[in-house]
């Protein structure tokens, strides 16, 4: 289905501009291809119907055991990791996994568009024709009925609907007490430690240029960005795509080109199936990580706003409130209206 002009199609010339923009991104990805070097290459194990996962990691030894187990169970058959100078044994851990191919980069995370240039090159080489999931180590994909149906179900269903992408909104999970007050050990299910989320304070609008639903809100906005809502984090993502060499992510996985990959909604009020990314950012190590971020200055906007944000995170504030919703499975997110079943029965 083509995007209608209501979604802000910038006309013929705009479409032409977007096409060139996409090519520039692809060129940039190609130009930066030497920034990553292969450590372990197991890509010969990939079969034609493999579902692939791509991620850039830095010091994620704590999250990765559960992350790998979770996505393996969900049907991912091969993992691509780019390790950005971890010092906590992440690389060693990943190297031992039988279904992981590992790359390393010592270059700047920020200058590589937060890893998207590196992953873009891997997607270009290995993703073509496959269903590819691009997520961070602190993101767990859920969708309606995902406990009973794995990604192979979902992707073959998307194929029959002739959809080549699947959208998901980020849902920040937080603990009941102050941040850092609970315990988490590697391999635990993070939703046991972080079981709460904000259910009804998300704002959608349509991005005038890329035509995606632009979602902001949630707990981070409520607590940290009330004064500057325009700065609050973007929560819409398109993590799951049947990849084509011509595709490219623009800004993290929030936006991509060509624009039709955002076409997960329509203006008549019809509802397609959609998912969510459970965001486990607020695990107890957040204090440590925030301190590191302050030091490293590699994240989105290095403004005083973000410094204040990291300072408050490091100090262990409480995000919980009495109307917070308890996460007890994907069905809960469907009831809240954060994701929808559409005609996925």
């Amino acid at each position: 289905m083509a995007l209608s002009s209501d979604k802000g199609l910038p006309g013929l010339s705009g479409a032409y501009r977007l096409r060139w923009k996409r090519r520039r991104f692809l060129f940039r990805i190609w130009r930066k291809r030497h920034e990553i070097t292969s450590i372990v290459d197991r890509t010969s194990d990939i079969r034609r119907d493999s579902i692939l996962l791509f991620s850039t990691v830095r010091n994620e030894a704590l999250r990765l055991p559960f992350f790998l187990a979770y996505y393996r169970k969900l049907g991912v058959t091969h993992f691509f990791f780019v390790d950005n100078e971890s010092s906590d044994g992440t690389a060693e851990f990943l190297r031992q996994q039988p279904d992981v191919s590992l790359w390393h980069s010592a270059h700047s995370y920020r200058l590589s568009r937060f890893g998207m240039d590196w992953l873009g090159w891997l997607l270009w080489q290995f993703g073509h024709g496959h269903w590819c999931l691009t997520v961070d180590a602190d993101e767990l994909l859920v969708y309606p009925d995902c406990e009973a149906r794995d990604l192979r179900n979902l992707t073959s269903w998307l194929d029959t609907k002739q959809r080549s992408s699947f959208g998901a909104v980020m849902v920040d999970l937080y603990p009941k007490g102050p941040l850092g007050g609970s315990s988490y050990r590697a391999g635990d299910d993070p939703t046991e430690t972080l079981s709460w989320f904000d259910q009804g304070n998300y704002r959608s609008s349509i991005h005038a240029y890329y035509g995606n639903t632009w979602i902001q809100g949630g707990v981070r906005e409520r607590v940290f960005f009330s004064d500057q809502p325009e700065r609050s984090p973007t929560l819409n993502k398109t993590p799951l795509v049947r990849w084509n060499r011509r595709y490219t992510y623009v800004s993290s996985t929030h936006q991509m080109l060509p624009r039709h990959l955002h076409d997960s909604f329509d203006l008549e009020g019809k509802t397609k199936a959609s998912g969510a990314l459970l965001h486990t950012k607020f695990l107890p190590i957040i204090a440590e990580k925030s301190a590191e971020e302050l030091e490293r200055k590699q994240h989105f906007q290095n403004t005083t706003l973000y410094q204040d944000y990291h300072r408050r995170l490091a100090s262990g504030i409480t995000l919980w409130h009495k109307d917070a919703a308890y996460y007890d499975g994907p069905q809960k997110l469907v009831e809240c209206g954060l994701m929808s079943k559409g005609d996925w029965v």
């Binding site: 909604f265 009020g269 959609s274 929808s340």
Partner: peptide
């Protein structure tokens, strides 16, 4: 659900 959605809900896959 696919054709009408849930009235009054604006979210990632419903934006009338």
């Amino acid at each position: 659900r696919r054709t009408y959605g849930r009235p009054g809900l604006f979210m990632q896959s419903r934006f009338p």
